[in-house]
């Protein structure tokens, strides 16, 4: 089975995020980029599938700071091939990114057809789209998002896929391969790969660089951000006051406003 994992680098929110001078983007100076958490789950699911059904896992990422680390880590974990699409600086939006990924997948020989294209169901910087549905649309493949489990019937070329629904309920689908799946959680938490193995991968394996085919604007142009700002952070809880009944009612209002009642 041939699996492609799309991996994207996103800002690490452990770091204090700062705004760029124009107030429209993040200041990249102190930015630390890490692999999108959900993409890590996608990679894990791919590796689990590979272990179960045998096959290959190819990880494809758009260029961004620290992407090499992420790709070598993927190789050390057991991916067979890592591909980096150059000519980017990691600031493409999700939509343009998906566009470029789809272009690359179809233009680089040997990548397609693949049985499965997996990626994270979401990323913290998804402002103008979601990778899985966009890529599936561009490649004309079926897709499902928020997937938590995949099992494959390799002879029939279909996968049984579980997708999350509210309240812990899951929906079961039968998907004809090839397909694009947005992974919410791999069946097991992403594996740990010791530093020594990553270092060994850096020595013995290589990341393949491919230039992006054309300028990527996703067909609709990049979504212009007018302004970015930090939401006010509360250092201390807002205290609710009054009689127990009054407090309870205030709290119910708050919960209702957030759709929790």
């Amino acid at each position: 089975m041939k699996i492609i994992v799309l991996l994207k680098m996103v800002p690490d929110v452990v770091e204090e995020l700062e705004l760029a001078a124009d107030g429209k983007a993040l200041d990249t100076e102190f930015l630390r980029m890490i692999a999108n958490e959900f993409d890590n789950h996608a990679l894990e699911e791919a590796l689990l599938l590979k272990e179960k059904y045998s096959g290959t896992v190819t990880v494809v990422a758009l260029d961004a700071p620290e992407v090499d680390d992420a790709l070598f880590t993927a190789l050390a974990k057991g991916a067979d091939q890592a591909l980096k699409i150059t000519d980017g600086d990691g600031t493409l939006g999700t939509r343009a990114g998906a566009y470029r990924l789809a272009q690359t997948l179809s233009s680089v020989p040997g990548l397609l057809p693949a049985d499965l294209i997996l990626t994270g169901a979401q990323a913290i910087d998804d402002l103008d789209g979601l990778t899985a549905p966009l890529v599936s649309h561009l490649l004309g493949l079926p897709q499902l998002a928020i997937v938590t489990k995949i099992s494959v019937d390799t002879t029939a070329g279909v996968a049984t896929v579980l997708r999350e629904f509210p309240g812990g309920v899951r929906g079961e689908y039968e998907v004809k391969l090839p397909a694009v799946l947005g992974i919410q959680a791999a069946e097991k938490p992403p594996r740990y790969v010791p530093v020594a193995k990553v270092r060994a991968a850096m020595k013995s394996q290589a990341i393949q660089s491919v230039p992006a085919a054309t300028a990527a604007d996703g067909g609709v142009g990049l979504l212009p951000v007018e302004e970015m700002s930090k939401p006010e952070v509360t250092e201390h809880a807002q205290m609710l006051k009054g009689s127990p009944e009054e407090i309870a009612n205030q709290l119910c209002e708050i919960l209702a406003a957030r759709g929790l009642l």
Partner: peptide, 23 residues
């Protein structure tokens, strides 16, 4: 935007070739 219609907006925008704003 809940897990019922999670991917709907992005799919729509792609099919219609118009913009989409998430979250």
């Amino acid at each position: 935007l809940t897990n019922v219609n999670w991917e709907l907006g992005a799919l729509l925008a792609a099919e219609l070739e118009v913009g989409y704003v998430n979250a």
